[in-house]
Design a protein around this nucleic acid. Structure first.
Lengths: 233, 233
DNA sequence: AAAGGCGAGTGACTCTGGTCACATGCGCCG
DNA sequence: CGGCGCATGTGACCAGAGTCACTCGCCTTT
C-alpha cells in the first residue's frame, strides 16, 4: 500500500493540517503491517516516527522490573501513538503491541513536529490529547486502589461501554472485548480471578458472551451498581 | 502578601513570558495561605485558577469510589498544578491537598491561557510538562504491578532520590520524606506493611532516620539492588 | 483428521498482606 | 508541665487472591 493524502486525511488529527503540509508529510510517510503480538513502539527508546493506526487494534503496555506485564490502554483505528515525543523529544513511555493484526502509517517525528509548530490548531489538538491521556491514566490509577476485586472488574467494564449507551442505562455491548488475560494485566489481577468474577457476573446475567467479538451487557444499571459499590457480588 | 512581578518571576514557567504579559497577570493574581490537609484543587471541578506553589508541599491524590485515598505525586515550591485545563478547559483530574502549610499564587486560568497563546515558548514548556507527567504516571503505574511488596517500596524510595545522587551510587538523602502513610497510599499498601518494610530496611542499614525531615540512605547500591529485584529482602 | 495453540473454566492449596488492637515516642501548644 | 495529636512500631488473626495443575472447547495450521 502506498501513502496518499487521502490516507493521511483518514486521521482526524492530520486533517487539521493545511494541504501543503499534508503533501509534504505524504512524501516522508510509510505504511507497515504487523502481526498479532508484534511490538510497534519500544518503551525507553527515542522513536523516530509517530504511529497512526489505520486498521487493527493495539495496546499500550509496560513491564515491571520483574517482567510482569502491565496493561495501560487500547488504541483503535484513527488513533495516534508515540505522539508524546512531539512535545519533548523524549523517550517512548510504554510499549505498543499488536492485539489484532494492524496496518500502521509511520510519519517521521521531526517532519510532524515541524508541521505542528506552524499549525496552532494541531498543537492545541495534541495538547488536548495529552490532557485526555493524563485524565485517563489518573482514572485507571484510581481503579487499582479499590480493595474489592469484583468492583474493580465492573468499573473496568463500565469504562469500556460507549458513552451514548451509558446514557439510557438499558442494555449495552462491548465490541472486541479484551480477553480475561488482558483485563487481568490492566487491573493487577491474575487471569483466574478475572475468570471467576466473570462467572459470577454471568450467573447474575450482568454479562453474556456473544461470540468472540461481542460482550453483551443486558443490565447496565446492575453493572453500574456493582461498579460504584452500592451493590456487592 | 501582595503579588508583584518579582513574585511571579519566582516560577520558571512564568519567566518565559514577556514583561508586558507578566504585568497583566500580576493584576489578576492573588496569594492564599493553606493549612495542612486543606484542599487546594478539587477533582472533577472546572477550576478557574492555575495554582503556583510558592512555599510548602502539596500532593496530588484521588479517591476510589469506596473512599480510599490514592496518592499520585508531590508538588514542590516553584511547581504548578491545575495546568491541564489550560489545554482543554476540562475538569481537574485529581485533588490537590496540602502536606505542609503552603503559600499558593492563584493565576486565573483564562488570563494565563491568553498569555500562553501568544507565547510559543510557554506552550512548548507546558507541553513538555504534560509529557513529563504522562511518563511519571506510567512509571508509577508500573510500580503497582510488582508482586513483591518490599521491592515496590524500594523502587518508590529510589524514585525519590535526586538524580545527581543516583549517579555516583554512594550514600543519598531524601529531604522531607513522605510519611509511611503517604507512601502506603501511593503504592496501594497498608500503612503497617510500609512500616514493616522500613523496619527490615533499617536493620539492613539501607535507610536511616535522621529527624523528621531527612531520611538517610547509606547504601544506594543496596537500595538499587532491592529495587530492581537482583536482591531480595 | 490430527496437532497445536490459545482462551476460558475449575478445584485445591498456600501464604501474603490487610485489619484490628494495641503500645510507644515525639513535638506542639495552651 | 500535662495533654493531645500524629507518626511509628508490633503482634495475632484470617480472608482473599495468587499459584498450580488440570480440563474443555474452539480456532488455525499441517
Amino acid at each position: 500500500m502506498v501513502v496518499t493524502p487521502e490516507l493521511l486525511s483518514f486521521f482526524p488529527l492530520l486533517k487539521l493540517l493545511p494541504a501543503s503540509s499534508l503533501l509534504a508529510l505524504v512524501q516522508a510517510s510509510t505504511v507497515e503491517k504487523f502481526a498479532r503480538r508484534a511490538v510497534v513502539l519500544n518503551a525507553g527508546q527515542h522513536e523516530h516516527n509517530v504511529c497512526f493506526l489505520f486498521e487493527g487494534r493495539l495496546q499500550g503496555v509496560d513491564f515491571t522490573v520483574d517482567g510482569r506485564e502491565v496493561g495501560l490502554f487500547f488504541v483503535e483505528p484513527g488513533d495516534v501513538c508515540g505522539e508524546i515525543a512531539l512535545f519533548d523529544r523524549g523517550v517512548q513511555p510504554e510499549y505498543i503491541i499488536v492485539l489484532s493484526p494492524a496496518v500502521v502509517v509511520w510519519v517521521p517525528l521531526e517532519n510532524l513536529r515541524a508541521a505542528m509548530l506552524e499549525c496552532p490548531p494541531l498543537v492545541s489538538n495534541l495538547g488536548m490529547r495529552l490532557a485526555q491521556r493524563i485524565r485517563q491514566l489518573t482514572l485507571q490509577r484510581s481503579l487499582l486502589g479499590m480493595p474489592n476485586i469484583a468492583q474493580r472488574v465492573c468499573c473496568q467494564l463500565w469504562l469500556l461501554v460507549e458513552e451514548h449507551e451509558k446514557a439510557h442505562m438499558k442494555e449495552g455491548v462491548i465490541k472486541n472485548p479484551p480477553t480475561h488475560m488482558e483485563i487481568a494485566i490492566m487491573l493487577n489481577l491474575s487471569r483466574e480471578t478475572v475468570t471467576r468474577v466473570f462467572q459470577t457476573l454471568q450467573q447474575q446475567d450482568v454479562v453474556r458472551r456473544d461470540g468472540a467479538s461481542r460482550l453483551q451487557l443486558p443490565s447496565l444499571s446492575l453493572l453500574k451498581a456493582y461498579a460504584d459499590g452500592s451493590r456487592e457480588l
